[in-house]
Design a protein around this nucleic acid. Structure first.
Lengths: 210, 210
DNA sequence: TAGATTGTTAATCGATTAACAATC
DNA sequence: TAGATTGTTAATCGATTAACAATC
């Protein structure tokens, strides 16, 4: 059969993790793996792995298991991580720098094309493979270069106005690190909120209830 | 009734978000709110809010709703965010710096007591309210100061050995930013994995399937 | 072929939503 | 009191796990 139409977000969020393990296996020279082996490696059930994968097609072979490289590439393609959607970073503080320098955009579906900041001492310097531009040039840049995604590495107060400006410039996709929820209601606007503070508090709870 | 014994992680992960909204309301001078009002503000059901809160006790009043300040403090206490557990940061690269400087540890249950790095140019400099120390001093420091938690802002290769060393020093709680899963199997060791790459790939998927 | 392991259906489990009696 | 809104139970929905026939 194959290809369910409505894939749940729970399944999607597991795919990048499968990918990490498959990449490791591939690097180690492992060519095939069964759902059972992978499940004990990752600490989940074989059933779940098979169910997850069968949302998208039939990638295995009875009696054999899964070909590591083939499955890896299939998941890359399912996630759209084999593409190069234009992304800009707003804010070149420590977090913006960390992301610009360390995030492997190319293997995750994006291409970093520019960074923006308002600090004169940063403007004109080199980020990863691109320049740090003045935030005042944002609109011109967007109209000329049409980025589809933006990583918001700016304080909470700045996030909503900048997001609105970006939406007007055609940006449809936000990776939001500012400590607020943005634009949950705007149609056709995608937001992935990363709330590091929420994550830390979850750890506080676990610690308290250890 | 009140106080269920086994609270699901889904409920816990919603609490910090409730807290953010309650903090905002409190700052705006709002003193009471009903589950209905809060639910439309946050984009979820009133039923879910009431169910979530009733895992921990009865914080509302029929016909009135919830007192904002009271509920805010209740959630702070449930999460253990009103404590000050000693935390260290390993790695003072851009990410370590971003977290040291911008994370509001005091309101999230922790106290940052030291940062460690191996780079001589960083050692001895001042982080937020503490020093950057030589990673070679890690064991001595831990035995003297007994941190319970560590934020791992180091590359993947370094994460596991450092985590093991820290566990031997009594650290039981990891906030892991390195691009690997650590120690899922070790008993009594808590890990909150933050996989920024996984988050970005989820965004890639959403974008592809927009 | 026999053994292994998938794809897939059915059963279970848990989480969310709806409903309403209790009560402020 | 009457209106509002909780706390809580029951109903629904979705996700995970188990089981097994299909098949490599």
């Amino acid at each position: 059969m194959a290809k369910k139409s409505n894939i749940s977000i729970s399944v999607i969020r597991r795919l990048p993790r499968y990918l990490r393990y498959l990449n490791d296996l591939d690097k180690q020279g492992v060519t095939r793996i069964s759902s059972g082996e992978l499940s004990s490696l990752m600490g989940l059930t074989a059933s779940q792995i098979r169910q997850d994968l069968n949302c998208f097609g039939e990638f295995g072979q009875q009696g054999y298991g899964y070909n590591v490289e083939l499955l890896k590439n299939a998941i890359l393609s399912i996630l759209g991580a084999d593409r190069a959607e234009k992304l800009i970073i707003i804010g070149y503080g420590n977090l913006g720098k960390a992301i610009a320098r360390n995030m492997d955009f190319e293997n995750k579906g994006f291409e970093l094309i520019a960074v923006f900041d308002s600090d004169p001492s940063k403007i004109g310097t080199n980020a990863k493979n691109c320049k740090v531009l003045n935030i005042s040039e944002l609109e011109n840049f967007c109209h000329a270069n049409k980025p589809v995604a933006a990583a918001l590495c700016i304080p909470m107060e700045a996030a909503l106005p900048i997001a609105k400006q970006l939406i007007d410039c055609g940006v449809r996709c936000f990776w939001n690190f500012s400590h607020c929820d943005i634009a949950m209601d705007m149609k056709d606007v995608l937001v992935e909120n990363v709330h590091l503070g929420d994550s830390l508090m979850t750890l506080a709870y676990k610690l308290k209830n250890l």
